[in-house]
């Protein structure tokens, strides 16, 4: 049991590393040629432009720079402050805005000609794709943890968090089924539901795919690794009664995620569930030994503990990745 658990964890870890590597190779941001070397966000309210040579001081006034979100060109902003700093042979212009920028959306920055021989520039500023993927993962894992901040999957959460062993078992089985069903749901949504305008069948199709993947994992595990099946088989039925497994495909569909984003969302959601289960089971094992008033024993005290975890997870809201 112990060693099979460890093997499974290694396989999962390796799969995650492989996905991250592929993403890094495929989507590493290409550097711009010419005058502008690099663009990017810095902090909540700043956009930085790295240039090859310094810009004349008289051009560094807020009116010369205009920024807007790519999908919302009507709302134009001027920076409140433009600063220039030379560091390590590179020249960095930083534009400070008075309101926080929505870093999830790409921004367009327009400038007047900054050197005598360059034209007026229109620059696209976006987070690196890897950063975007990482943000989806961390967001589903911690900031919008499905159990503690979205209150989903609670029946299974309270049912299987009495012992650490059951908690990890449930979490790992859930992660596998979640990944499989999210990927299948993405293909079904992208290549069947959208082309044939069958959007209204979302719920039926997604839950059907979940039952299908539960059945598939059940059959494969039974044949391939009967020992593992004996310890994990009981959790498979519970997976289907967990709201998270249907909430993730619905969220994916409403946000029009692509495949990699969907995988990250599924990993984050399932990892967050595993994390929540592990934390909760660690506390509940100790609660068994604690002197608790008779009427609070069992579920009531578990709910209050979960409430405290939820309060603690509120601390992650507002977390920003660089």
């Amino acid at each position: 049991m112990k060693s099979s658990l460890r093997n499974l964890a290694i396989i999962l870890g390796a799969a995650a590393a492989l996905i991250a590597l592929v993403a890094a190779v495929l989507f590493w941001p290409a550097s711009n040629d010419g005058f502008i070397l690099d663009t990017g966000f810095s902090g909540d309210t700043k956009i930085t432009l790295t240039t090859t040579s310094p810009v004349e001081k008289s051009l560094l006034v807020p009116q010369n720079f205009t920024a807007f979100e790519e999908n919302d060109p009507d709302i134009q902003m001027h920076p409140v402050k433009v600063k220039q700093k030379l560091s390590g042979g590179k020249n960095v212009l930083s534009l400070t805005f008075d309101a926080p920028l929505n870093r999830a959306n790409p921004h367009i920055v327009k400038t007047v000609p900054l050197t005598s021989d360059s034209p007026a520039l229109s620059l696209r500023v976006e987070q690196s794709y890897l950063g975007h993927l990482l943000f989806i993962l961390i967001s589903a894992l911690l900031i919008n943890n499905y159990v503690f901040t979205k209150y989903l999957g609670l029946c299974v959460f309270f049912g299987t968090s009495k012992r650490k062993k059951t908690a990890t078992g449930m979490g790992i089985v859930f992660t596998i089924v979640m990944l499989a069903s999210a990927i299948m749901s993405w293909f079904a949504y992208r290549y069947v539901l959208i082309p044939f305008h069958l959007d209204f069948l979302q719920v039926v199709v997604f839950i059907g795919l979940v039952s299908l993947s539960v059945q598939a994992v059940d059959t494969i595990l039974r044949k391939v690794n009967p020992v593992l099946f004996k310890s994990f088989g009981v959790f498979l039925v519970l997976v289907i009664a967990n709201c998270i497994i249907i909430a993730v495909p619905l969220y994916m569909a409403s946000n029009q995620y692509n495949l990699l984003e969907t995988v990250m969302l599924a990993l984050g959601a399932a990892g967050g569930f595993l994390l929540a289960l592990y934390l909760m089971s660690s506390v509940r094992e100790r609660l068994d030994l604690a002197p608790i008033p008779e009427s609070f024993k069992g579920l009531p005290i578990a709910f209050i503990t979960a409430g405290q975890f939820a309060l603690a997870f509120l601390g992650f809201s507002g977390l920003q990745l660089i």
């Binding site: 901040t149 009427s295 579920l299 009531p300 709910f303 209050i304 409430g307 309060l311 509120l314």
Partner: peptide
């Protein structure tokens, strides 16, 4: 939002 846990727990108790 997170008071839901406390309310349900207290009512069950």
């Amino acid at each position: 939002p997170c008071a839901g846990f406390f309310v349900v727990g207290l009512m069950m108790a």
